[in-house]
Design a protein around this nucleic acid. Structure first.
Lengths: 150, 150
DNA sequence: CTAAAAGCTAGAGTCGTATCTAGATCAATG
DNA sequence: CATTGATCTAGATACGACTCTAGCTTTTAG
């Protein structure tokens, strides 16, 4: 029924340190209660909440933003539009992130293909080496140009 | 022809501080030369290289990994397979990142839809508020469950 | 000629997100 | 009962990636 910090750490994947840290940072939806001896007690709902937090974290939501969200939730009903706005804001952040990643991926795939071609043809050593700038002028330079990559 | 650190900063989007920092960290493909008075001089190739670096950075490649790559490039021809391996490694990192982001996006879209529905129906205040745990037992709880989100 | 702007170095500070340490207490086990 | 392990607090430390400061020299504009 009641969970110790150690159990929650194990089941949430967060360290006990991180759990105490999250608590100090005000990231728990409901306040963490204590046993008479001062030890923290958690419940299943806390684990569920932590699962949400780690999902949001994994999408790059900052602890500060999670805290804003938690604060809205703790204020109780009536601010759903604000919560919605916050989520939508992060949603578009994540979409932008994905866009950037995909772009970088394209660049890298292009690089990889160039290397593969040249390695396959045994011509690898004709790739431009930017530390020998001359090569860029005298030989073919398939490297280190923004259009082609290094 | 020759570019000052200020010009490079402006055109690369990096600060002059960051440029000096990158240099200390060994992230330049060719060593940064100096004028007799000690000032750094850069060239177009450096800008091109920086553009690549910022692209890699934007996909989350660490400076350490960029440095590894630079070192391979500086060693000259012969290690193309290592470069390839490094790029492929990061490529799959990025793919994994995109996967995580998409997952988180799904979760959030689900949350957003729940909020929208309830707000639209004027039933927003029946969403579960995790700081009043009773509500989770007495009323309908469409919130803060890992399956449904908060 | 002077004042502002740009550059230099070495090193300190910042921010976010944890993680670890020391020293104390409490709980469970042989 | 004594050890071991879990927990507590407060505060220190780490790490990545910058960012800024102080104090000095050089360049440029008026």
């Amino acid at each position: 029924m009641d969970l110790s910090i150690g159990e929650v750490a194990e089941r949430s994947g967060l360290s006990v340190h991180a759990l105490r840290f999250y608590e100090r940072e005000g990231l728990f939806a409901n306040p963490v209660r204590r046993l008479p001896n001062g030890r923290r007690i958690y419940h299943e709902e806390d684990l569920e909440w932590l699962a949400i937090c780690t999902k949001l974290r994994s999408s790059g939501m900052s602890l500060a933003m999670i805290r804003q969200y938690v604060e809205l939730v703790r204020q109780g009903p009536g601010n759903e539009l604000e919560r919605l706005e916050l989520l939508r804001r992060h949603e578009s952040d994540v979409e932008a992130q994905i866009g950037e990643l995909r772009e970088a991926l394209d660049v890298m795939r292009h690089k990889v293909r160039i290397y593969e071609d040249h390695v396959a043809r045994g011509e690898a050593d004709r790739l431009w080496n930017p530390s020998h700038r001359d090569a860029a002028r005298t030989g073919p330079h398939q490297e280190c140009r923004p259009s082609e990559g290094a």
